[in-house]
Design a protein around this nucleic acid. Structure first.
Lengths: 329, 329
DNA sequence: GCAATTGCGGTCAGTGGCTGTCCGCATTGC
DNA sequence: GCAATGCGGACAGCCACTGACCGCAATTGC
């Protein structure tokens, strides 16, 4: 039969086997792949000449194994592993680790494009069960994010429903160009076909499903740098949303760096031994209670609502403790 | 030159291109791969016969694209994407999502085996910057976890330093068999060569680096099921550690399921409208935090330390609010 | 409806890579 | 030193791959 596709398929299988287990002897591989041992040696050579470092050891305890090379070989994942990767990327995209959100979304878009639907269902099920423990920031569906990122990559027009700042709902027809993550929010930079101009959209304000259209033409943001474009737009529109929360902590910034995720808040020194922690977005109850877990004394600076929230959280916790005492008696 | 390796390499490149962008025309691909358009068509056929569903559309807006098939094609990631995947798997492994920890570790072991060292460094750097925001449960280095999982998979002997329950340090020489995650802790089931018997090790009590040895012989846990083995061992040794925390919430369990990660706590109904939430491991301040973020009234049941923690958190919050008032004056 | 673009697949000839077999050699662990 | 293992040269047969050329079908845009 078609030898090359056999050969190619065999090379892929070989790579897969080498990724599954560390050590294989030539004869094991020959048996698994149903070819002669000589062919295995030749295949190993082929893999090497393709840049994948197959290490070999002679002797009775010898065998073949795949080493870490200069280039990443194609990853051959089984179903469960693929699901794990997708779920991992979803959480990474929604941001527990600073600095790789956008790359995670890109990788997720790539994976979702080829993910069999049965696996996609499993990913979705697991993702929904995730319990947004770190429910900081606006909640965004990673699938929506991946879909938008894919549309940007492929220059595919998208229609979606959008809730503007004044809560008015509109239908948008756009040619998406880039997805930008500011450390707090996700934005889509796209050419709005109805308004005939470039716009930025807050992705958490996109509602419903994306409707994909035909191929778009514009894919380069004015100025070339999508992140800069978003920054300008934000500054111009003075988008501030709810006020940030500020808390003063009786500890130098260095002592806090490790305990305050950069993603959520900034730290400034105040005097010698105090730090001002400011949330990047609007404050949330979580910020409050979490700050209360630090060892050092804290003082809420503002806004007044945060002070009120602190008082009510204190009351709730007190009640919880009192309830315990009552239960004991 | 070697046509088959050229052909195989071209198929891989083709797959890579199709994963990068959604639509390519045949002539674009032909130019990129430096072959004739006819060959591209044949290569597409080859990919199809390998099981990867390449969709094609005729017409002026047509082209080739990779669809979602029954089988996952080899993932061809660039450097940044590989790092994102590795970081995502690390966080998934250390457990923000219930149910895929062990698979994530397996996938991570697979990836780390072939990850070029420059990328491994970047992953480590990002991982270290993660800020253990969700620092529930014992902290475990995902790299250690991946290393152990790899040793299990490959049946490679490992030596490591181990801190026993009575804090005494010992050197262990083992043939690792399986890594088990209980929903709270990670365990290694291995054959202890010095003690000549099977043992379970808490991975958070392993110190320092793993030293890998030669090939082991035993890889099947007595009874066949590693998880069951670990469960038996835990029951026998009566390992309980610090006491679990319990909080009574004035809400039916159904209302809580979504807001309380199964991984950290169990929920039982008490009466008609109340639920008892019990941490799986010892309670931590974080448990207190998110319980206090629920809307319904809560009551700490025990242990007394948790009551005390609630009281002191309440006091701190009160002080924080008072401090704010003072600052305003 | 027409034209342009694009994918599809048949055919042909030439070339050269792939496979299995057989061989001797080097290395490692027991 | 023996057994197991990887390495690679040589040889013969075979047939898959490539590029070129062709006409056909489907889709989009005007």
């Amino acid at each position: 039969m078609h030898t090359v596709i056999q050969t190619s398929a065999r090379l892929l299988s070989l790579l897969s086997l080498l990724q599954m287990r560390r050590e294989w002897t030539g004869s094991e591989l020959a048996e698994r792949l149903d070819v002669g041992a000589r062919t295995i040696r030749r295949d190993v050579d082929k893999l090497r000449s393709l840049g994948y470092p197959v290490e070999a050891a002679p002797g009775v305890a010898g065998g073949y194994r795949l080493g870490a090379g200069g280039e990443l070989p194609p990853l051959l994942l089984d179903d469960a592993e693929a699901v794990a990767v997708a779920v991992g990327l979803r959480t990474a995209a929604t941001g527990s680790i600073a600095g790789i959100e956008e790359t995670s979304v890109r990788a997720l878009a790539k994976l979702e494009q080829v993910l069999p639907s049965r696996l996609r269902r499993r990913v979705r099920a697991l993702g929904d069960a995730t319990t947004s423990f770190v429910s900081e920031g606006p909640q965004i569906d990673p699938e929506l994010l991946a879909g938008i990122a894919g549309a940007c990559r492929d220059a595919i027009r998208v229609r979606f429903a959008y809730i503007a700042k004044d809560h008015s709902a509109t239908q948008r027809h756009t040619e998406p160009a880039a997805v930008v993550h500011t450390g707090y929010r996700w934005y889509l930079v796209a050419f709005d076909l109805d308004r005939d101009d470039w716009r930025t959209f807050r992705i958490d304000r996109i509602r419903g499903r994306l409707r994909l259209g035909g191929r778009g033409r514009r894919q380069t943001v004015p100025g070339g740098d999508p992140a800069a474009f978003v920054k300008r737009q934000i500054r111009r529109s003075g988008e501030s949303g709810a006020p940030a929360g500020q808390i003063l902590i009786e500890a130098p910034p260095e002592a806090l760096r490790r305990r305050v995720p950069e993603r959520y808040a900034t730290i400034e020194a105040v005097g010698d031994d105090e730090s001002l922690v400011t949330t990047r977005g609007p404050w949330s109850p979580y910020f409050l209670v979490w700050m209360s877990l630090l060892d050092e004394p804290i003082h809420v600076v503002g806004p007044p609502e945060l002070v009120a929230a602190a008082r009510s959280a204190a009351a709730r916790l007190n009640e919880a403790a009192v309830g315990a005492d009552r239960a004991e008696q």
